[in-house]
Write a protein that binds this DNA or RNA. Structure first.
Lengths: 157, 157
DNA sequence: GGACTATAGCAATAAAATTTCAATAGACCA
DNA sequence: TGGTCTATTGAAATTTTATTGCTATAGTCC
């Protein structure tokens, strides 16, 4: 990354490579993108510090680890006032089953992706926590039957 | 991980830590989970080889990188015959804007998470590619206004 | 054309990963 | 209960990688 903050072709190759393999060694990465290791590492650090790279995560096999249920939950609130929104979001952040939450346009106010060990745990959460939460008007869930593609992130050419 | 394939408390700590920080050094990881580096690394390798860890990814800042639009698309197909399903899934895998695809229960057949540079690119994709694709009956999109929580993966206690 | 700046890469050093191997703890059986 | 076997640990040594310091170079701007 240049000092001006503009990304060049090498930066994009670095980002694409790291999005695909977050644990590649700097030596390999450097080779892939056509640099020697030191400038390559400097670019990675610069990309991290500038916030282009937000972090690194291991992708775990949910099924193998005993998390068999995933659902999308579309949530409508009774009030969309600032305070009410914030307090709902805070609650969402505290629920471990909710892995992702998006404010959306359309019929619902929020779209939640939830992961749980089994149907019982998920129903428990939806009925006792989500539906029962203050200000929640409607909850419409969509059960995920199978994951067909999973390439989270951005489509770098 | 033991030879029996059962995960013990240390394995779970390893998984949880790596899900949170996929680029932690083995030295740090070992310290966190209460092992010396060699057995810690052996466990990580075993977890990788057994498929509990599917990979590592850098999380990129989509907005900063110029990807400003995310939508959920619920897709209904005309035919759910085996062959038709497969060919739709193959098409989905080839579309770079589609980052995630799930077969779901309910009104739609698939839920797609799509990421694009701007509204125009997204509309182009939805109209010219997705809606126009063979066997696609209905497409209902939900625009993501804001991401409120993003902790992809599983809720390890 | 000369000075300046940004960035590359070599070389050296520090740190981490990885291998090897001996020791230990627990399970199982006589 | 004692002995054997197995799984796993951790210390030490080695290899590989990350990181730093510095010089060289290419491109830019007067």
């Amino acid at each position: 990354m240049t000092v001006t903050g503009q990304l060049d072709a090498i930066d994009w190759r670095i980002l694409k490579t790291l999005q695909d393999n977050g644990r590649i060694t700097n030596v390999e990465l450097a080779e892939k993108v056509g640099l020697s290791p030191p400038p390559c590492l400097r670019r990675v650090r610069a990309l991290e510090e500038a916030g282009y790279i937000a972090g690194y995560r291991a992708m775990l096999n949910a099924e193998k680890l005993g998390f068999e249920i995933m659902v999308f939950a579309m949530v409508g609130l009774k009030s969309q006032a600032e305070t009410e929104l914030s307090s709902f979001i805070e609650r969402v952040k505290a629920w471990p089953l909710v892995r992702e939450c998006y404010a959306v346009s359309g019929e619902a106010d929020f779209m939640l992706k939830c992961v749980g060990a089994n149907l019982h745990a998920m129903q428990d959460f939806i009925i006792k926590d989500l539906t029962a939460a203050a200000n929640v008007d409607s909850v419409k869930t969509t059960l995920i039957l199978r994951r067909e593609k999973y390439e989270p992130g951005i489509p770098i050419p």
